[in-house]
Design a protein around this nucleic acid. Structure first.
Lengths: 346, 346
DNA sequence: GTAATTAATTGGATCGTTCCAAATTTGTCA
DNA sequence: TGACAAATTTGGAACGATCCAATTAATTAC
């Protein structure tokens, strides 16, 4: 059974030329005569020919035009947007992408990477699962497949990375809360022993030190980087003696949770307690109160990661570079600053 | 340049067997002697061999083990979760997936489908962009590639579909609001002339008719299926003379927007206005007030879609079937029903 | 009108794997 | 030990596109 598959040879036969000519037409080569090209293209359309990229990729020189993307938590809208940003760039560069969700499991991530290698990806963008080691990426580097780590980076791995300036962002956010008069500022949510958590807490600590305020460990409450984690964190924070009056949250998801938790305790975020998030997810703008947050522009970050990867793919030689994206504080209502002006009715 | 690629022939030479034997080992065939298998596997590990799936797929009998997934809006967490559900099933069935975001553009969707065909996908799960026509899926059907449409379906296309019982879900939700004493119930958010919108509005209308209540067009306010759309919808709804006291929202995103808009207007969702969503996104449970919503279990739906597609791929012969998933109302706080019990502190 | 030049076209050979039929080795039994 | 069956192994021909060197056709030059 031929499976009904139409091949270059079928086209060649029908158009009365050789398969080589058909191949040239497919590659839009200038070598082929216009009349011939037209005829071949007509036959291609007529027979419903589908280019077989797998066969073409067999020649060792070819590039698969497939790139792999692995994120650690697709249900988090930060990553969903990151993926969308990458998709945009890759799409217009003529690449397709294998997108997978490691769900924070290194085993799963390993499997996915192996599978992607078998499919011959030309590059990989990875938001590493917690616990990823340099060894996990070794084989990729060995076969010359460029890798870009986003959001988190992998210590010891010689791959490019694109992260955001967590330290500066956290510092700015806390400075802002201090300028609003807060003296007891907590750090809520997130998983304690991760690099990103560490960087953000350091920023928090430094800003407090700068203002001559103390930064007690009791005010650092790590839980999960999710809405539920935020709820749990604020519940505990409100039990601390000499309770905080404001908080920098690990990320926006946690910040929303903190708002939920405050309301459940009869407090209104922004008015009774200052809340600042991190990430600037789309919902941050439309939420009520609108979330003051450190903007890392996930889509933009996705686009930049994709561009970086493409650059490396085209460059051939892989020269790892570490980019730390700058970050800016977006002041909205949840910190209490924007409340005077209020929300203008549409 | 050999590109450093290790092939079966290299393994064969190093292990002192023929490439056919290596191939048998790769396929875990029982034909090969244990001692030989062990030696070959050792060499495979030693030389760092990577299976070339592209080459294997060349044989016409082979299946690519790649499936395509196209969703119309990945930034909507409903679709992100849908994708995660599919990922789980596909992953464990040994498939990888091309995941793309059509961003509601049919042109983009067409390109993506073409690209996926060239890569030889064994099946496609599609949440069609608005305006998708049967003709867009024709070539896939023609080459015997099974397609499962999810969420929305494509009229006239002979593909399997998996949608949820929008009519029944909406009806249940409105009945519940009626049972809580509401008499003026709006339908808020969503894009007006889409199938899903139509089905949900019909359920809303039928439930009202059943209760002997009127269903004026002024109370159907279509905007966008997003948080911002919900805010806009409730703003308009509150201006309607004889304003509604509760609303069924097109989806959870819109419902969250409605809650935001209510608060901005000084009203508390659940207490001053009943809000019911649709989809049961994860955040629905942890939000404050927890969202009463019609559960369609996006992850579960993703899993079922993936299973349906796998069934069709394995069956060979493609027999389209339309599955309408049942749906159930999850009563939480936002409708006002759960307020008496309140939220128990953790 | 023929040689030189340029423009188009074309057979293999090749990429890395699978599959088939055929060959080889090993084992069994009278 | 020889005949026969079972267990292993193995070349070579696919699969569908690309690329190279070589051939043929069309132009131009003299």
């Amino acid at each position: 059974m031929n499976k009904g598959r139409v091949t270059v040879v079928d086209i060649a036969r029908a158009a009365g030329v050789s398969k080589s000519t058909v191949s040239l037409v497919l590659q839009a080569s200038p070598l082929v005569n216009e009349a011939t090209r037209a005829k071949v293209n007509a036959v291609i359309r007529e027979l419903g020919y589908v280019y077989n990229r797998g066969a073409a990729n067999l020649r060792q020189s070819a590039s698969s035009r497939i790139i792999g993307i692995i994120v650690n938590d697709l249900t988090n809208s930060f990553f969903a947007e990151l993926a969308v940003g990458m998709d945009m760039v890759m799409q217009s560069a003529g690449y397709v992408q294998f997108l997978s969700n490691s769900a924070e499991s290194v085993d799963r991530q390993r499997e996915v990477i192996a599978s992607m290698r078998e499919h011959g990806i030309s590059g990989l963008i990875l938001s590493p699962a917690r616990g990823t080691e340099a060894a996990d990426l070794k084989p990729l580097a060995a076969s010359g497949i460029p890798v870009v780590a986003v959001v988190r980076n992998v210590v010891g791995a010689k791959v490019s990375s694109l992260s955001s300036d967590n330290h500066a962002g956290a510092k700015d956010a806390v400075r802002h809360l201090v300028s609003l008069g807060h003296r007891r500022i907590a750090f809520l949510g997130g998983i304690a022993n991760t690099t990103v958590f560490g960087e953000r807490v350091a920023g928090w600590r430094d800003a407090l030190a700068e203002a001559g305020l103390e930064a007690p460990d009791a005010l650092v409450i790590g839980t999960t980087a999710s809405r539920a984690g935020g709820v749990a964190a604020i519940e505990r924070a409100l039990l601390v003696p000499d309770r905080p009056t404001a908080a920098l949250c690990f990320n926006d998801a946690a910040a929303f949770g903190v708002c939920d938790g405050l309301r459940a305790a009869g407090m209104e975020p922004g008015r009774d307690f200052g809340v600042v998030g991190f990430d600037d997810v789309i919902e941050a703008e439309t939420a009520v109160p609108a979330l003051t947050t450190v903007s890392v522009d996930p889509q933009g970050m996705g686009r930049r990661a994709a561009q970086l990867l493409l650059k490396q793919i085209n460059a051939g030689r892989v020269e790892p570079e570490a980019i730390v994206g700058s970050v800016r504080l977006v002041v909205r209502q949840s910190c209490g600053a924007g409340l005077k002006t209020g929300r203008k009715p549409a």
